[in-house]
Structure formats: structure tokens, C-alpha cells
Design a protein around this nucleic acid. Structure first.
Lengths: 205, 205
DNA sequence: GTCTATACTTCGATAGAC
DNA sequence: GTCTATCGAAGTATAGAC
């Protein structure tokens, strides 16, 4: 019952070579987009024969899944650590605004469009991450003035969307309005969360 | 000076066959993602021989560019018409919230990651569209209470981002928080722009 | 357990036939 | 002006040698 779809032998999951292939694939994905992640190019990028990709991964999709899971788990763990160390609004915003994460998401969003197994994995992770973010955001907002503020989940979606648009456009070389948008979010945070390191309580109103 | 890079002959730009190929390519792009847009598959989708793709387009990138430009120009024109017919906040939001447009953008954002000529075209269009949107948004906000409101360009980026995230996630089957976010935006609009119902040629200012 | 020789498919692209 | 026969490169995947 272990391997129905094919009888082909696969390399050990903890192999050093396998790890090199995954790392190379992730690098290619981030630098050149998912279309560059082919067995030949991954092999070359890792300094290995392309056939090794198929020895360690039954299909290319399996390789994509491995790349995604590694990064997703690491991301969730990093997020949990961020929350554990305080999890202020400022921290949460900083986490969202990281360029690398957003690039990664775009590639997998496009991939998920036409590969079912990848779509399922991305959807699953998206839900987990959303739930974790929402809990952290609720905690961070707890005690602040709720007057006229959108529901936390709406804030979350807007901030997530903003980060992604900023990342995509930066990639394109389009940056009109970016600094204004970032400044707005940061002012908002400063108003809600005046604690900061520089002890600036912000203006009234 | 017309054709330096290659001497190969190309089909007429106004050919009916060419238009069919572009339409087939756009369909494939939207339904299966850009990776499905190959000369063979486009040919099959159009009921034509795959070589015709290369007769009408020097490279696959040229086909992508044509698909993009057609849609981009049509989109800009539609946007201008929307603005001309009133261009209320409600209209602008509705335009952004269309699923089709967002899907298209994701595919081309991913494509632009690793194809320079496409990146340049997407960037150019993004700037034009952003400028048009910003002008329309400024007009729509004109006369409303500016108290505590973010700068228009920041609003624009947030709304654009929100629409895209909603579209991507809907694609994935993840919809947590979507209705809340949409409701928030619509309440905001209703508050700023209480004119609502149709047949109203506009407030007296 | 690890890797390679090899098969077969699909790709983009071109030269030349109608 | 329109289309097709065909090529070389690149794609995924497997069976079998070490």
C-alpha cells in the first residue's frame, strides 16, 4: 500500500544530494520564475545530472511541493517566533512587507492555477497561515480603540494585498505611490501602538 | 530598418487567422495558466496547425505581448468609459473587483518575472493604468470629507491589492474573511458617497 | 542506496512549398 | 499572402548499472 502509482525506486528523503536539488529549485524559482524549474536546469544549478531530480522526486510536481512545504513550514515557524517575541502590529506588518515571501507567493499562485496537487497544498497552507495571522492580529489589536475600524480579518486581507502589490510592482520597476502607502500604514500603526522603541506617543486625534 | 533580427516572413497583422490564434492563446492563458500557452496547444485550441503560430508571431513572447496589449488596451478603454459615465467610487471599486482582470494580472506578473520584453510592456501598462485610476479616484473623492483619510494613491494601492488577493484566493478555494473585507469597502463607499441609486446624475457638489 | 544510459514527447523555430 | 515539412534542443520519465 506504500507505492501504488509506480514501482520506481526513489532516493532517501534525508539525502544530502536531495537537499541540494531542493535548494537549487527554490533558487531558480525565486530568481527566474517557476518556468525555469525544469529537471535539466535544476540539475545544472545544483551541479548534478538532471536525472537525479527524477531519482529523488517521482515527478516535477513533487519537487515543487517539497520546495513549497519547506518554505511554508519555515515561514509559519518564523511567524510563530515573531508572535512569541511580542507580536506587535509593527512586527506583523514588517513580516508581511518582506519582499521574498511575496515573490514566492506569486510564483506558487500562478503554479496553482494549473496543477491540482499544488493548488491543494497552497490552499491548505494559506488557510493555516491566515488563521495564525488573524489570531496574532486580534491579540495585537486587543485594547486599542475599535472605533470606526474594519474587522481584523478585513484589515488582514487589505494589508496582505497591499504587500503583494508592492512586491509585484517593485519587481516590475513600478513604484508610484509605494512610499505613500507604506507611510500611511506606518502612521496608522504608530497611532494605534504608540509604545515603539523611540518613545514617540504620536499625535492625538 | 523594419526587420533586422530575422528575415523570416510574417503574416498580415489584420489576418483573421491571426486573430483566432490570439483569442485561443488568451483563452488558454486564463483557463490553464501561461505555461499552457505553447505553439502546439494554441494551434490545437484554434483548430489550426501549430506552425501557424510561428508564421504570425516571430516568437512566443510576441504572441504573449499581443495577448497582453489587446487586453490592456481594451481594459484601459473600458475604464475610460466607466469614468466617462460617472466614475463614482462605486464604479471604480466594481471595476477593480472583477475576477477576470485580476487573474490576467497574476499570470502576466509571473510571466514578467523572467521575460524582459514582457516585463517592460507590463510595467508600461501598469503605470498608465495607475495614472488613470488615480485621476479618476481623485475626482471621485473630490468634495468628500478628507478627514483622517489616507492619500488617494495609498487607497488605490490597498484596494488594488485587496482585489487581487480576493481573486487569487477565490481561485484556490480559500474565502475566509472575503465577505467581511468586501462589506467593509462597500460600507466605506456608502458613507463617502451616499447618492447610491441609479438615475442620479450626481450630487450638487 | 546512488546514479546514468536512454527513450520518448513536446518545444520553439525555420526554410521552402503552394 | 498563406501554410507545411522538418529540425535540433529541451522537456519528463524509466530501467537498469554500479
Amino acid at each position: 500500500m506504500a507505492t501504488l502509482p509506480s514501482s520506481r525506486r526513489l532516493g532517501a528523503p534525508d539525502s544530502k544530494t536531495r537537499a541540494r536539488l531542493v535548494a537549487a529549485a527554490e533558487r531558480l524559482l525565486l530568481e527566474e520564475g517557476y518556468a525555469a524549474v525544469t529537471s535539466r536546469r535544476v540539475g545544472a544549478a545544483a551541479g548534478l545530472k538532471p536525472q537525479l531530480v527524477h531519482y529523488y522526486f517521482r515527478t516535477m510536481d513533487d519537487l515543487f511541493l517539497e520546495v513549497f512545504r519547506r518554505r511554508a513550514e519555515e515561514n509559519l515557524a518564523r511567524f510563530e517566533r515573531t508572535v512569541a517575541k511580542g507580536g506587535s502590529l509593527r512586527d506583523l506588518w514588517q513580516f508581511s512587507a518582506e519582499l521574498r515571501g511575496a515573490r514566492f507567493n506569486i510564483e506558487f499562485a500562478a503554479l496553482a492555477n494549473h496543477r491540482k496537487t499544488i493548488r491543494a497544498e497552497v490552499a491548505h497552507y494559506a488557510e493555516r497561515f491566515r488563521a495564525a495571522q488573524l489570531e496574532a492580529l486580534r491579540d495585537a489589536l486587543d485594547g486599542t480603540d475599535p472605533h470606526g475600524r474594519p474587522p481584523p480579518v478585513a484589515v488582514l486581507l487589505m494589508v496582505t494585498g497591499l504587500s503583494q502589490v508592492l512586491a509585484i510592482e517593485e519587481e516590475l520597476g513600478v513604484t508610484a505611490g509605494h512610499s505613500e502607502a507604506v507611510a500611511f500604514v506606518e502612521e496608522l500603526i504608530a497611532r494605534l501602538e504608540p509604545t515603539a522603541s523611540r518613545g514617540d506617543p504620536g499625535p492625538p486625534v
